[in-house]
Design a protein around this nucleic acid. Structure first.
Lengths: 149, 149
DNA sequence: CCATTTGTAACAAGGATAGTTACAGATGGA
DNA sequence: TCCATCTGTAACTATCCTTGTTACAAATGG
């Protein structure tokens, strides 16, 4: 179980921004919707800004908005921006180098990580934030392209 | 990151069992190779037994062995056996039901989870434990079928 | 019998994530 | 110019998850 909620919260935040168009949205408003603290939201949006997905404006009339149109923001971009690690974790302790399996298993696992990461990326590249917004607004499930084919 | 190493350790354990053929392997031996405690191994193998991947024998001459041949054990089976949750976590706190986005985002995220889980499963079904064992023994990277195609 | 091994419960330790408080810096408007 | 308001960020706490460890019952072959 991945305990990291950042991808989920990011999509929530971005959907709100997408819905708000060019208008600036305050962290306090977003926090209310997400049901958490405004600092958590600002901290998260920091990552989204580094990935050029969101812009901010400081000061009394400040807030956040998308850096580009929602159909130009792919879920694979979001995933890469906020999910740092890999699909599964490797050994905490280095395996015994005396055992022929322990000696070589790490590189195999490392390669497998990349295979899975690529599979996730190739799937998420098919969806944009605009798809998510549409799904949220219509209540219809997001189009599953693999099932459609 | 307190993330789950169970998939990685499971493949390590299963590879050792595959390499040992019909012979029984003790948890103490496996623990040495994985560089951890024998109880951790036994605890993990419990899950693998529930998934019909491993058999055990109690008593003085006991130990563990595979329940079927290594090329019949798919990595998707292993993943499902030991990775309980989903690819990413949902909100800890329920989003505000007053906000139109908060009200509907959960079902969209839930659906996305399934999409990603399916992508992982469809990728891992292409690899068997025999592939992992071969890769460990030859030192050659595991065949990447997506790249080959 | 008995040494040895699995199966399992119970608890401790470590690490990651989110929540909270506090405050500096920016900014638009009165 | 002053000030209310918002972002940016650091520091700390609380909580949860995973792993490591100890302990012991149950099984089993010799």
């Amino acid at each position: 179980m991945a305990s990291n909620t950042q991808f989920a919260i990011s999509l929530h935040v971005l959907t709100i921004l997408a819905k708000s168009g060019d208008g600036l949205v305050k962290s306090e408003y977003i926090a209310k919707s997400v049901n958490t603290n405004a600092v958590v939201i600002r901290r998260l949006i920091c990552n989204l800004q580094s990935a050029d997905l969101v812009l901010s404006q400081k000061g009394a009339t400040g807030g956040f908005r998308l850096a580009k149109h929602a159909d130009k923001i792919l879920l694979s971009d979001v995933y890469k921006a906020v999910v740092p690690g890999d699909a599964f974790a490797l050994h905490r302790q280095k395996p015994s180098q005396k055992c022929p399996v322990g000696k070589n298993i790490e590189s195999v696992l490392c390669h497998l990580q990349k295979v899975i990461d690529r599979a996730i990326d190739e799937k998420l590249v098919d969806y944009s934030l605009a798809d998510v917004l549409e799904s949220v607004e219509t209540g219809q499930p997001i189009t599953d392209l693999s099932a459609a084919a």
